[in-house]
Amino acid sequence: MKTPMIARPRLSLGGELSYLGMLAPLLIFVAAIAVYPLLFSFGISLFKYRLTDPNQTKTFIGLANYLRAFSDPVVITSLKATILFVVGTVTTEIVLGLGLAMLLVAETRLMQIIRSFLLIPMALPSLVVGLVWKSLYNADFGIIPYYLKLLGISAGHGPLGEISTAMPAVILVDVWQWTPLLMVIFLAGLKSLPIEPYEAARVDGASRWQSFVFITLPLLKPTFLIALLLRTMQSFKVFDIIYATTAGGPGTATSVLNYHIYTVGMVFFDMGYAASLANILLAVVAVLSILYVMVLERQQA
């Protein structure tokens, strides 16, 4: 990666200051809306702090909230559900997104129209998507169980009502909504690929499948990194789709970690414990992201 040589102005002290001055609004903004809340949430996670406590006492209890999290059976089940959800959504979306991108990469008018149509799900608020799918899935009035019955498949309590199918059903909603994003990312990646390796491969007599596996996939690695990072982080934090469709049910089948945090924070108003759970979620996502970057960067080298 070569940057064109542009004469860079030498920084005097005044110059540095004016740089800072120009950056200041952004820095203040980020500090106010990201850094401060983060520190604040870490702060209250060390306290026993329940908003609905009439005396509003805040007792310092050190790391007790974090220790409680690791012995909380709901946290364990919700972590399992979260991982299931993340793996299910991210892999399906990457495979489908890449497939769609390969299909629609051609720059014809038809493809352009199809592509913009496929973007519509992303434009809808997740809550609306969740509610629409909830009615589609409804065992008594929904279209999906109706056709399943016509095909002779028993829908039981409906896709969202059965423990075995609830998770796949919410994963499907997420896949429906977010595959287009991955399609866009992969389209961008595909369009930026150099043409030469393909020409060389064709001369060498490689099949299309071989050039896909040995040229396209390796060259797309940076794109995979972006796609994986983006969707893993989003999937870990999923809340709205679960809230709108199953509320974590049936039983605890789709009770993801973020939904549990919501319950602790906004139903029990146990802010200290909720903050500690949120920080754990943050740590998990951060560690995973760093791992992704490290693995893919190493392969890059």
Binding site: L119, L187, S192, P222
Partner: peptide
């Protein structure tokens, strides 16, 4: 190569934003 990927991604995302805005409007 990577800067090209990034640039294209940004362009597409920009387009996407425009599409989204249009749909929302």
């Amino acid at each position: 190569m990577r800067s090209k990927t990034l640039k294209t991604i940004f362009q597409l995302l920009l387009m996407l934003t425009i599409v989204l805005l249009t749909v929302q409007c």
